[in-house]
């Protein structure tokens, strides 16, 4: 039974010393320990979260980069094709211009040639007419220099007129 009867002295000291122990440890051990444990846990949580955020941001940046690269590529292609188109159109225009110019030159030349030809023709005609008149004059002058021939010519003419009647 002695085992089961609590000793008053021990009970008294146990209560006193346990309370002192509780006070000292609460104030100087448990409080700083649990406080800094909590703080550290919060720190770790925050760090993990910020790491996660950073990773997400990195992915975002990578995506953006890819987008930018794709956009740049597209733009380059657009610029290249535009340039090609432009050069083509410029070439075509130049060709057309040249053709037009050539056509104009040719048609001008043709016109000039034509008019020169007409002019030359006219000149030839005129000269021919003058020449034939001259010749005819000279012939007539020579023919009509004698009376017989004159009379003959008149007769001929009359005959001709009569024949034609």
């Amino acid at each position: 039974m002695e085992l089961l009867t609590p000793g008053t002295g021990l009970l008294f000291w146990q209560i006193i010393i346990f309370l002192i122990l509780l006070f000292i440890l609460s104030k100087y051990a448990w409080k700083p320990i649990t406080d800094s444990l909590k703080e550290r846990e919060k720190f770790i949580e925050d760090s993990l979260e910020s790491a996660k955020k950073a990773e997400e941001e990195l992915v975002n940046i990578q995506n953006k980069n890819e987008e930018l690269i794709a956009e740049a590529r597209k733009e380059r292609e657009m610029i290249l094709s535009d340039a090609k188109k432009l050069s083509n159109s410029m070439k075509d225009e130049a060709k057309e211009n040249a053709k037009e110019m050539a056509d104009k030159i040719i048609s001008d030349a043709k016109k000039v040639i034509e008019s020169e030809k007409d002019k030359a023709m006219n000149d030839v005609k005129n000269t021919l007419a003058e020449l034939s008149i001259d010749i005819a004059e000279k012939i007539i002058k020579k023919e009509l220099s004698k009376d017989s021939s004159q009379k003959k010519y008149v007769d001929d003419l009359i005959k001709e007129i009569n024949n034609s009647k």
């Binding site: 089961l4 009867t5 346990f18």
Partner: peptide, 11 residues
């Protein structure tokens, strides 16, 4: 010791 456990249980 029963006195020790008694006081702890008492708390």
């Amino acid at each position: 010791n029963i006195a020790v456990t008694l006081s702890l249980a008492l708390f």
